[in-house]
Design a protein around this nucleic acid. Sequence first.
DNA 1: AGCTCATATTGTAATAAGTACAAAAATGAA
DNA 2: TTCATTTTTGTACTTATTACAATATGAGCT
Lengths: 146, 146
Amino acid sequence: MSYKIVQDYLSGYGIRPSLQRMAVMEYLMTHRTHPTADEIYSALAPVIPTLSRTTVYNTLSMLAACGAIQSLDLDGGRMHYDGDTTPHAHFICTRCGTIHDIFPETQEWHRTLAHVPPPAGATVTEMQLSYKGLCAKCTTLNINNN
Amino acid sequence: MSYKIVQDYLSGYGIRPSLQRMAVMEYLMTHRTHPTADEIYSALAPVIPTLSRTTVYNTLSMLAACGAIQSLDLDGGRMHYDGDTTPHAHFICTRCGTIHDIFPETQEWHRTLAHVPPPAGATVTEMQLSYKGLCAKCTTLNINNN
DNA sequence: AGCTCATATTGTAATAAGTACAAAAATGAA
DNA sequence: TTCATTTTTGTACTTATTACAATATGAGCT
């Protein structure tokens, strides 16, 4: 992924494109695995030896607050992040932890929002639709008692 | 809430109705505040002086796994619990933490499920639809810069 | 270039939620 | 009652995240 694309993306959200921020953003753009803050830190630390965990946490919170990325409350303990901000749902496997994207037709997404309306007067900043269960592979393993 | 109702409810899920389990379940049935494990512990500890935090955590996990209650991954840090297992969505205010229930028409809920299908072959055990933002009260406070 | 001030990053220490585990207690069956 | 199983308890630990103060960086001005 080119330097300039990431830089322009951040600038477009009014975010100053520092080395660290670009690295985090680029990681999320090129890895569709919905990583946690720590996974991102571990991947980037070898490349940016001075990188601090705190910076990764701060950067992710900031990017999410600006709407440049999406944060996912999926597995209780830790937060996952998604560089794709187009409206979509997620499935998380409670056995292997894999997270799958589910892209509904845009009109269906809007229909859901219209029929499950947030409280009157509230300002909605995020919406999340998620499923938990066993993925196909783990369902099979489970049947075979592994 | 009568002892017998709670007891029968747990028995219906094949859960042995111990004193501790009944207390936790009864708390969730009579408090629609979507409490965390610690809030439940703090409320029950004075009534059951020997109660242990671990028991509350274990009980909640078990009740959720059996489908007797619903667990809500809403605010990153901690898990919230809901004694109402009928399908409904939630709104959480990121400022004051209040959680509101949103009850859509049942047919709309099913329509959403049908149009946002989980991965093929997966076994879905939980579904969660949630909004985050500022509640009406906090929206007003925010405008007035409080 | 050098200076200055605001912003960003770093590292350490602290917090907070939840889990592991082994001992003790309670329960139920024989 | 006795024995085995289940449940509860308490302590210690792990893990994710935040607080905070010190340091570094960078953009604009002279």
